[in-house]
Structures are given as C-alpha cells and as structure tokens.
C-alpha cells in the first residue's frame, strides 16, 4: 500500500528573469515500510519536494496522497494540512531542533501535547519511545547534555510520537560523523520495517545509501526513475516496538 504519493508536482519560485523551476512534473510513490532516499545536488529541488510532500507548502500543480487519501489537488488543499501534519507525518531535520529548555522526555512529550494527549499516558508513551531508541537513561537530560547522535535520536522519537504512517527527514545525518550517520540510517530502516512506517530521507551522504530500499535522484527539479537497492542491510537485534 502506498503511504505517500506525489503526482505530477510542479513548483516555481519568482517570475521573469528570476523564475526558478523547483519541481517539474515530479511523481513519486513510497510504500508503507519503505525507506526511500532523495539524492541530488544543492538546488536540485529535494527540499522543495520534501516540504511539498510534508504539506508545508502547496505545489502550483499536481496532487498529494497520504495513506491513500488525496489531500492536495491542483495546488489546493482538500483537508486541514496542520491536522494532517500533526497526526500523519513525522519530521526530522538536519539539526535535531530540540527545544533547549526541555528535557529529552519533554521534547518527545511536546508531540503528544500538540495532539492533546497529556498526563501520565503521554509520559509513559514518550518513555517507551525513548527506550525503543535506546535513550531511556537519557530521558531527563537536556539537549546540551546529549551527544549529536543522541539528540538526533530524540528528534526521531519526537517524530514517531503519534505513530505516523510517514516520516520525512531532511539531511538528518549532515551534522553527524560516519559511524553515527550509519546508526541513524539503520534506525530509520529498523523503524520502517518494524513499524511499517514509510521514511523519505533527503541526503547527500553516499556512504549510507545501502540503508535505503529505493533511491530517487533529482536534478534541476526533475526526478529520475527510482533505483531499487535490493540489498537490505542487517540491523542489530532490538527490542520490539512499543
């Protein structure tokens, strides 16, 4: 089943001589449980595609489906995009973007708070997620007390809080060294396979490409046909998902 589909997406910025075609007739589908990479040089349109698929901006033309439901058509929203982002999409960024005045646990609980889930249930679920990502003993630590990789794992826990069918990650390993980059990518893979979450990752990092099921390459706003990797990575044994 397709967790995400973007069809014939066009997006242009500026006008006249300053006109930039960020997306041109882009069609992309990601299955539930699939880990897809978006590759391409700077300015190729990767981030525009990610923000369009993440319902942060509307395309000029084209449609977006989330979990089989058409939510954007002809550059027009068919639903409350904020509500869809809240419950159906998790975001991970280049920087962890943790709230500096909150502990790791509270940073994850923010996602529950936004969805109106409070109190002990939210706390328990946030703790379960941190445990799932190997951070149970760091729950009360503030971001400045965590390593870069740990911060990124907290950000991933926050993205997974509402068990979204789709996680979008924008260069999540850019600030990490090789070993930690690989750890994070393996984590995405594990999440996708264990939880059935579709994961789309924008990356420049060719060292971690073997972590992806499919690789999409972009250039000048045009998406090349996907390349299947067909070589699943071995993931370390982990506890079952909460």
């Amino acid at each position: 089943m397709l967790a995400l589909r973007g069809e014939r997406l066009d997006k242009t910025y500026g006008a006249g001589d300053n006109r930039v075609v960020a997306l041109h007739d882009v069609t992309l589908g990601v299955e539930a449980g699939e880990v897809a990479a978006l590759l391409g040089p700077s300015g190729s349109g990767k981030s525009t595609l990610l923000t369009t698929l993440g319902l942060l901006q509307l395309p000029d033309r084209g449609s977006v489906w989330l979990a089989g439901r058409e939510v954007v058509v002809g550059g027009r929203a068919l639903a409350d995009l904020s509500a869809l982002r809240r419950r159906q999409i998790g975001f991970v960024f280049q920087k962890a973007n943790l709230v500096p005045f909150l502990s790791a646990l509270e940073n994850v609980m923010v996602a529950f708070e936004i969805n109106g889930e409070r109190g002990r249930v939210a706390r328990r679920r946030a703790l379960d997620l941190l445990g799932y990502l190997g951070l149970a003993d760091r729950a009360d630590h503030r971001p400045d007390e965590l390593s870069g990789g740990q911060q990124q794992r907290v950000a991933i826990a926050r993205a997974l809080a509402m068990s979204p069918p789709l996680v979008l990650a924008d260069e999540p390993t850019a600030a990490l060294d090789g070993a930690r980059s690989r750890d994070v990518m393996l984590l995405f893979r594990r999440i996708a396979h264990e939880r059935g979450t579709a994961v789309v990752v924008v990356t420049h990092d060719h060292r971690v490409l073997d972590a992806f099921d499919t690789v999409h390459e972009m250039e000048d706003g045009v998406l090349a046909p996907p390349r299947a990797q067909g070589r699943p990575l071995t993931t370390p044994a982990d506890p079952p998902p909460p």
Binding site: L56, I89, N97, V110, A111, I114
Partner: peptide, 16 residues
C-alpha cells in the same frame, strides 16, 4: 522563533 516554527511544522494548533 525556531521553537514556534517547530511547533507549527509539527501541526500545533494556533491556540496552543
């Protein structure tokens, strides 16, 4: 600003 942007990106309601 960044925290508010993050909340909005995560779909936080305006009233929050």
């Amino acid at each position: 600003t960044r925290e508010i942007a993050l909340l909005k990106l995560m779909g936080a309601r305006t009233r929050l």
